[in-house]
């Protein structure tokens, strides 16, 4: 062979294959747009219904009103037909229960994470970690059932014998169950964060004659503090958005109170109670659930975005 055969470097892929490639591309693109579409769908559907609601009830009445008693008018001219839609008692109730949960879960979760990452041998870790994962995997409806059936009566009994007045659906019962539920979340996130602290810092501390607990308390935890803060924010967001535990173990009536022994209601409880059963779609009562949903979405979104930024920044610091 003496003549050079020219190599074909231009496109020789047949038309059919090209069409196929384009179709596959489109399919892939559509699939990934679903994920983005869901977010847009959430924002628009909630905002649309909430807008309808704010036509009937002013935004400031909703955000700053101190009374929540959503009613549907039986007759048009009925007195107080509109009910009151002040979300403040729901917000405080949500915060109260979430705060109790965080007070329970933060020390338990952090102490577990520290023990598992710094002290426990591989065998203990191999047993305890899956157990904590089970705790995280149990459906919240189970926690709700247990809180209503066992924890609440127990707290009531203990409180009564101590001479305290305890509501049968106390914020404390719901908060305790929720706290246990988020322990695994905090412990696994903090465990990752603590493991990311460079070994060099531990060596430096041990080299100076520090004990292990001194190293943990004075070097590792301060070094990991921003990552831990991020994981606590994520846990708080989970607590605020949690529904079933509070639906089953917290109160239904709005109550502006900071007493953990009283019954308070939460945003999620109200959404459920407003929307279960038949509903007409144009009443302020039904629409208010979407306004609450929108509020919940933005609060949790803000917490999540903040948490993810903090954690990302933290990881870059030690990479």
């Amino acid at each position: 062979m003496t003549t050079h055969q020219r190599l074909s470097l231009t496109r020789t892929i047949p038309l059919r294959a090209r069409v196929y490639e384009t179709l596959v591309h489109l399919l892939l693109l559509t699939s990934s747009l679903v994920a983005v579409g869901v977010t847009i769908g959430i924002v628009f559907s909630l905002a649309f219904e909430a807008f309808e609601f704010f036509k009937r009830v002013p935004v400031e009445d909703f955000l700053f009103g101190l009374e929540w008693s959503p009613q549907t008018a039986i007759r048009e001219d009925q007195v107080g037909a509109q009910g009151s839609f002040g979300a403040v008692p729901l917000i405080t109730g949500t915060l109260l229960i979430s705060a109790i949960a965080m007070i329970v879960a933060t020390p338990l979760g952090l102490a577990s994470a520290v023990y598992l990452s710094e002290y426990a041998g591989p065998r203990t870790r191999a047993v305890v970690k899956p157990v904590l994962e089970i705790l995280a995997g149990i459906p919240t409806v189970v926690y709700g059932f247990f809180a209503a059936l066992v924890i609440a009566p127990f707290i009531r009994m203990a409180g009564t014998s101590a001479g305290l007045e305890v509501a049968s659906e106390s914020a404390l019962a719901a908060g305790l169950a929720m706290g246990i539920m988020i322990v695994p979340l905090i412990s696994s996130l903090s465990d990752d964060v603590i493991n990311a602290v460079p070994q060099a810092l531990r060596d430096a501390s041990y080299g100076l004659g520090a004990t292990q607990s001194e190293t943990i308390r004075k070097v590792i935890l301060p070094a990991a503090i921003s990552g831990i803060a991020g994981s606590l924010l994520l846990a708080a967001s989970t607590a605020i958005g949690e529904t079933m535990i509070v639906v089953m173990a917290a109160g239904l009536a709005a109550n502006l109170s900071a007493n953990p022994l009283e019954a308070v209601t939460t945003i999620t409880v109200q959404i459920v109670s407003l929307l279960t059963g038949d509903q007409e779609f144009d009443s302020a009562k039904t629409l208010s659930a979407f306004a609450l949903g929108l509020l919940l979405f933005f609060v949790t979104l803000a917490l999540n975005v903040a948490a993810q930024r903090i954690v990302k920044h933290y990881r870059e610091q030690y990479d």
Binding site: L201, A204, S205, Y206, L208, G209, A210, P222, A223
Partner: peptide
């Protein structure tokens, strides 16, 4: 070992100041 290391200091390969 805590007392021991207080008497025998160590400086590491990579500078490792605490944050």
């Amino acid at each position: 070992v805590v007392a021991l290391r207080a008497h025998i200091g160590m400086v590491f390969q990579k500078p490792n100041p605490f944050p």
